[in-house]
Design a protein around this nucleic acid. Structure first.
Length: 274
DNA sequence: CCGCGTTCCTGGGAGC
DNA sequence: TGCTCCCAGGAACGCG
């Protein structure tokens, strides 16, 4: 499940492979993954454009084109943005192929087709991709205990739902939400209106190293995630709670529990997290 | 405004 | 062995 660390890794791995290259053609196999503009216009507008740089906003991957347009991608659950030579067989569920002039193809593949692509033209307001609704990046100076308390302190949702809300903070998904809650020592089903200031401090402070550590290990691969060069992430052995149901807490030895919070499976240590 | 349930989609695993 | 069912989850949407 590509979350912030995985998209950051895709961005970093794609950068040396595609930056400076020109898109010679855009082959759309599954038009429904093109969300904006209409698929035909999307392909026509991208042809001949040069990729200047790769960026990221929350879980959105951004390919900045030299003319000022931006190719926006969201991988959702199972999406992949892969750079490979054309002689490598197209992966199953490849929906769009960008042929580059450097001998590579950039391929968008997505088993469940929850993901999508948007083209934002220079000067065009993005009111279509959803990235305009994102809250701050966790690494932004404005993000911290005071911010979280102000945004969530009077709401009556669970802390897990609160930090998963992309409008509150951009980039956390189910894996790193659970990991951050473990590091903060807060149970996922705590209501946000019961969180103390010290706990908001712990919450904000936990998110940063959890994401940084995952980025340092090139993201977490369970089954689907691959970086821009087709490699798996190595963060799996470093997870403390996610998908470790029944296994001992690395701190106290108590069996990691799993409950449903807001419809999402949530993993936590009943002793270390209150 | 707020919180909750549903929806999209496919593959993998459990259970019979 | 083979079938069916359920579940994984990001985010939009509709409902009360």
């Amino acid at each position: 499940m590509p979350e912030l660390p995985e998209i950051e890794t895709v961005k970093r791995t794609l950068t040396p492979l595609i930056c400076g290259a020109t898109i010679q053609s855009c082959r759309i196999i599954r038009p429904e993954v093109i969300k904006h503009p209409a698929p035909g216009d999307f392909a026509l507008l991208l042809r001949g454009q040069r990729i200047a740089s790769a960026g990221r906003r929350g879980k959105y991957l951004l390919l900045n084109l030299t003319g000022g347009d931006t190719l926006i991608a969201h991988l959702r659950m199972t999406g992949r943005m892969l750079c490979a030579p054309p002689e490598h067989a197209l992966p199953l569920h490849t929906h769009v192929v960008f042929e580059l002039d450097n001998g590579c193809e950039l391929r968008f593949a997505d088993t469940r087709r929850f993901g999508g692509l948007w083209l934002q033209r220079a000067g065009e307001t993005d009111d279509f991709s959803g990235k305009q609704r994102l809250g701050p990046e966790p690494f932004d100076a404005c993000f911290g205990a005071d911010y979280l308390k102000a945004r969530l302190g009077k709401r009556r949702i669970t802390i897990k739902q609160g930090i998963l809300d992309q409008a509150v903070v951009a980039g956390l998904g189910n894996i790193y939400a659970d990991e951050a809650l473990y590091l903060a020592g807060i149970a996922p089903d705590r209501r946000t209106d019961s969180i103390s200031y010290a706990e908001w401090q712990a919450m904000a402070a936990a998110i940063i190293p959890v994401l940084e550590s995952a980025i340092a290990h090139n993201g977490t691969t369970f089954s689907d995630y691959l970086d821009g060069a087709g490699r798996e992430g190595q963060n799996l052995p470093y997870l403390q709670v996610y998908r470790r149901t029944g296994q001992p807490c690395r701190h106290c030895g108590t069996a990691i529990a799993r409950i449903k919070v807001g419809g999402r499976s949530s993993h936590y240590c009943p002793v270390c997290q209150k």
